[in-house]
Amino acid sequence: MSALLLRDIRLAARAGGSAMLALAFFASVATLVPLGVGPDLALLARIAGGVLWIAAVLAALLALDRLFQADFEDGSLDMIALSPLSLESVAAAKIAAHWLTTGLPLALLSPLLAVLFGVKTIAALFVSLLVGTPAVSAIGAVGAGLTMSIRRGGLILPLIVLPLLAPAVIFGAGAAVGSAGALPLLGAFSFAACVLSPFATAAAVRLNLGS
């Protein structure tokens, strides 16, 4: 499992990989917001939690359609599926790699953006992204597994994944501003998503291998 994890991280980190792209996208979206709503720092501070959470979800979705598709198209997935690793473990490794190369860097970058937005609860925002983004990777992986054989799967993926991510955004943005009870709810949602998703994702991969 660690072999697959390390290889996916290596691919994401290399030129043309998704890790830097996601970070740059996150920062650009966050930059567009003040341009759109005006530079009023009090207003920006008030909406920052929600804005940064939405930007983070979109940035994490950016590379998601290739999570399985790249390996599916070049035949690697066939060989990975025939290896001693179960498809559930394959899914878990892919989710972990996706989070380590998108969710984690996004969370690490968020304090900087929080300063630019004049946020007071920087630590809460950071922790909310750290705890909540695994759910984005986990639920996104189900969508990535389902759409891997669709040529323009990247267009359908957000449509099927975003409504499922509503709880993450609600609890995440709540936790970012320090609302009572939001962080435990976010943690519970994230945990449940990470535990259940590998099974649904493996089922999706299995059905697409039969094509």
Binding site: I139, P163, L164, P167, I170, F171, G174
Partner: peptide, 15 residues
């Protein structure tokens, strides 16, 4: 997956 998540969505929206 949607059916499992739907009660959570309902709950989160209420919250």
């Amino acid at each position: 997956v949607g059916a499992v998540n739907l009660p959570v969505i309902e709950f989160s929206v209420d919250w």
